[in-house]
């Protein structure tokens, strides 16, 4: 394998992990606020289907009106997908905050229901071509050695994903509202005592997180695995939920987790080429072993030991960046009276 091939694979890993990155970032925000939206697997399927179908239908409609081009239809697709994701997330939040029902139960029922709904409503749209996000290399930047082809030779959805991860990190850790977000998820009582409307913030961040999850789903159907088919991306939502834990509820680490997943996928593809005699299905199992592996790592003392053997000066910063701690009030309902 030569350098050009390696760079090409790395570029494809970045592209392939983008939708997962969006979902992980979205769920990270939601859980940071204290709400668990377990419905990701169903939500992503439904939003992938919705995004594709809305883009397809609106492109047909616009063509009828004499407007060519895919930019608007794709935008409509993403907007519809964001609404789907937001709606599903708000259902979970409303069911738990207002109706005092189990978040996990609602999330799980939604997981099954929305997946079925996606297959049911998408049944007339399977395996047909449709619009997709336009390939858009960034001039000048794409000519940089190594970095250029890996990061700046994609479509707009990929760049925006990377931007979103950065913005969410900055918002969560560097701004006043971000501090409130973390407060609401960690110590709702203290936040409330300081005059923060805990449940209102939880609704808001659950909705934003859900919208990102929905956009992630549509990024699959409009940019990575274009189109719709039965159970198009089944399982990816669960991977996203696991990566949120592995990422220690931190957007940047979550993004790395997504890239790790993309790399595993790419590795599986390469191994498949190298060992054609091994049955293909066995390579599919790699992602699930990876999921168990990263969760074991997140739950074990291994990371702490890694900190202990590290050289003294970097121990503190290493410990901080490796710390895996769930928001303390995650999944707990807060009553404001």
């Amino acid at each position: 394998m030569n350098d050009a091939q390696i760079i090409k694979i790395m570029a494809s890993i970045i592209a392939q992990s983008a939708p997962l990155m969006l979902a992980v970032t979205g769920e990270t925000i939601t859980e940071r606020g204290g709400v668990i939206n377990l419905s990701l697997d169903g939500t992503m399927l439904l939003s992938a289907m919705t995004g594709f179908v809305v883009a397809l239908q609106s492109s047909l409609m616009l063509q009828g009106m004499g407007i060519e081009g895919n930019t608007l239809p794709v935008l409509f697709g993403f907007m519809a997908a964001a609404l789907v994701g937001m709606f599903a997330a708000l259902l979970v939040a409303w069911g738990s905050i207002k109706l005092r029902q189990d978040q996990v139960a609602i999330g799980f029922v939604l997981t099954l229901l929305l997946a079925n709904m996606a297959n049911f409503l998408g049944q007339n749209y399977t395996s047909i071509p449709g619009p997709s996000v336009k390939y858009m290399p960034i001039p000048l930047l794409k000519d940089l050695p190594i970095v250029g082809p890996i990061f700046f030779n994609h479509n707009l959805a990929i760049y925006l994903t990377l931007l979103v991860v950065g913005v969410v990190w900055w918002w969560t850790y560097k701004t006043q509202p971000g501090l409130q977000l973390r407060g609401v998820g960690d110590r709702p009582e203290s936040a409330f005592a300081r005059g923060i409307k805990v449940n209102r913030l939880r609704y808001i961040y659950t909705a934003i997180g859900g919208a990102l999850v929905g956009i992630g789903g549509a990024t699959y159907s409009l940019s990575i695995k274009i189109g719709w088919s039965d159970n198009h991306i089944l399982g990816i939502g669960w991977i996203a939920l696991a990566i949120v834990i592995f990422g220690g509820w931190h957007p940047i680490r979550g993004a790395f987790g997504a890239i790790l997943y993309g790399a595993t996928k790419a590795l599986a593809t390469e191994l498949q080429k190298t060992f054609p005699e091994v049955p293909v299905v066995l390579f599919n199992s790699l992602q699930w072993f990876l999921m168990l592996g990263v969760l074991l790592l997140a739950g074990s003392k291994g990371l702490q030991q890694l900190v202990d053997v590290a050289p003294k000066p970097i121990q503190r910063s290493l410990a901080r960046s490796l710390r895996v701690a769930a928001p303390q009030a995650l999944g707990k309902v807060f009553t404001e009276d």
Binding site: L112, M117, F120
Partner: peptide
Amino acid sequence: HSSLSGLIQG
């Protein structure tokens, strides 16, 4: 589509 029953149940 046979997902209908799952849709109704869910």
